[in-house]
């Protein structure tokens, strides 16, 4: 039973790692719409919204745990991490909404015609630049997890393959 639980936790960690790598690479592609072309930028950006939801789903236990204990016994780093994640989520929603509002390919292709209010372009630019900084902070706060997980699931299996 215990081994089954640890097996499932390990496979979840693996999924999370590959998903995070995918999110990071996609984010870099989405950040350059003039190079990746507008349709790729918009569709990949929309797809990232759903991938982010899965990312949150995989971190569900941590989110619930910290939310319950936030005003009681949460360490400084966890508290900072939790607040930063909420800011990141809000920024992500701003990027998504402003992206939908200024969309010229994906949203019209879905048959929606949105009335564009002023300010959405600037907001999209600003929130994306803030997201870069927040991504850096998010990565820094999860650095030990990233290093240990990459060592465990990427480098260690690769080394054992070479040693054979």
């Amino acid at each position: 039973m215990t081994s089954e639980v640890s097996k499932s936790a390990s496979s979840q960690t693996k999924v999370k790692l590959w998903m995070d790598i995918f999110i990071f690479i996609s984010f870099l592609v989405v950040m350059e719409p003039h190079l990746s072309d507008l349709p790729v930028h918009e569709w990949l950006g929309l797809a990232l919204t759903f991938v982010m939801m899965v990312h949150l789903l995989l971190s569900w236990d941590w989110i619930v745990q910290i939310t319950r204990r936030f005003f009681k016994t949460v360490g400084g780093q966890n508290r900072l991490n939790y607040i930063l994640n909420w800011v990141f989520l809000l920024d992500g929603v701003v990027i998504m909404m402003s992206g939908i509002m200024i969309s010229r390919v994906a949203i019209p292709a879905l048959g929606l015609d949105l009335v564009l209010g002023p300010g959405w372009y600037k907001l999209h630019d600003l929130s994306t630049n803030v997201a870069l900084l927040l991504l850096g902070l998010h990565t820094a706060l999860h650095w030990s997890w990233i290093v240990s997980t990459i060592n465990r699931y990427v480098f260690a299996p690769a080394l054992s393959l070479i040693k054979r």
Binding site: M31, E32, L132, G136, L137, T139, W143
Partner: peptide
Amino acid sequence: WIRSTGKNVFVVAIPVLAI
């Protein structure tokens, strides 16, 4: 691609290194 993506990676790397 490398230039502009490198710029973005650099911006992400600054807080990572700083922390």
